[in-house]
Amino acid sequence: MGRPRNFDPDTVVERAMEAFWTHGYANTSPAQLAEATGVGKGSLYHAFGSKRALFDQALDRYDRLGAELAAEILSRPGSTRDCLATFLCGLVDSDLAQPVRRGCLAVNTAMELGGHDPEITRAVRAMQDRVIGALEARIDQGRRDGDVRAGADPRAAAEFLMNTIVGLRVMAKTYDASTLHRVIDTALTSL
Rank of each mutant, 00 (worst) to 15 (best):
G103W: 00
L91I: 04
V124Y: 04
D129Y: 09
G103L: 01
G115P: 07
Q141L: 14
M111N: 14
D145Y: 11
D95H: 14
R143A: 13
R122G: 05
R122N: 04
D145R: 14
G114T: 04
Q128N: 09
D95T: 09
P118Q: 12
V92L: 04
G146P: 05
A137G: 08
R130P: 01
G133L: 08
T121G: 09
P118H: 13
L113H: 06
Q141T: 13
E112P: 07
G115Q: 06
I120F: 06
C104S: 13
D147C: 03
D117T: 08
I139Y: 07
V148I: 15
R130T: 13
L135Y: 04
T109R: 08
D95P: 01
R143G: 15
D117I: 00
S94Q: 08
G114F: 00
D129G: 08
P118R: 14
A123R: 15
A123E: 04
G133T: 09
R138W: 02
A110C: 10
V107I: 12
Q98A: 13
G133F: 01
G114D: 01
T121D: 10
G133D: 13
I139M: 07
V148T: 10
D95G: 10
R125F: 12
R143Y: 10
D129F: 12
G133R: 05
V148E: 05
R144M: 14
Q141H: 15
E119P: 00
R144A: 15
G115N: 07
S94H: 12
R122W: 02
V124I: 15
L135G: 10
G146M: 04
A137V: 09
T121A: 13
I132Q: 11
D145P: 05
T109S: 10
Q141Y: 14
I120S: 08
T121C: 10
L105H: 03
G115W: 05
L135N: 07
L96C: 11
V92Y: 03
G133Q: 06
C104A: 02
Q141M: 11
I132Y: 05
M111F: 10
